[in-house]
Amino acid sequence: MALTIYGIPTSRALRILWLANELGLDFKYVPVDFSGGSRQPEFMKLNPNGHVPVIDDDGLILWESLACNLYLIKKHGGPLLPKNLADEGRALQWSFWVMTEVEKAALSLLRKLVYPADIADAEVAAARGKLVPAFSVLNGALMGKDCLLGTEFTIADLNVAAVLAWLKIVKYDFSAIPNVEAWLTRCLARPAYVAAKATK
């Protein structure tokens, strides 16, 4: 059995590299970048959308980072796997939520930092405006809880925190949402996240 993860750690592949490290998986790492590499014809045979990450798990080709993670956790089990159907539903819910409510706005802020000329100030303002109500919801969900599903760090936390990690890079001001700030700091301090960032 062999798992291959395509995508560099400064791309959305970090989300999968983090989980692979949490699960202690052996995997082959193929450093495809997002500024050309993912549009090469050979790569687009794996993912016709032309995006990283992609996994090849013994011949099963999957894309969409958070879907790959939900597959891998289901396959390998362990403490990050929700323990019942309701919690599995909540893990799915939060994974979709972070993509629909947070990711696009977070990416606008990140791109403004990295490619300031490409992103209009109006887009930045709109992105900031969208994040406020979304993070209010997340802050409420973390009220009185260490983790999204209760006391244990699960795939729900990993999938959401892996997207919010971009906002640490842009030094987003979390002071109005202390539950999110404390939780995100805990999540990103995990050794598996630190190891994933150093993937070579």
């Binding site: 894309w63 969409e64 939900l70 993509m99």
Partner: peptide
């Protein structure tokens, strides 16, 4: 896994 992949793809 493919079902979940396509579901995310539909949204993203």
């Amino acid at each position: 896994g493919r079902m979940v992949q396509w579901s995310f793809w539909a949204m993203t």
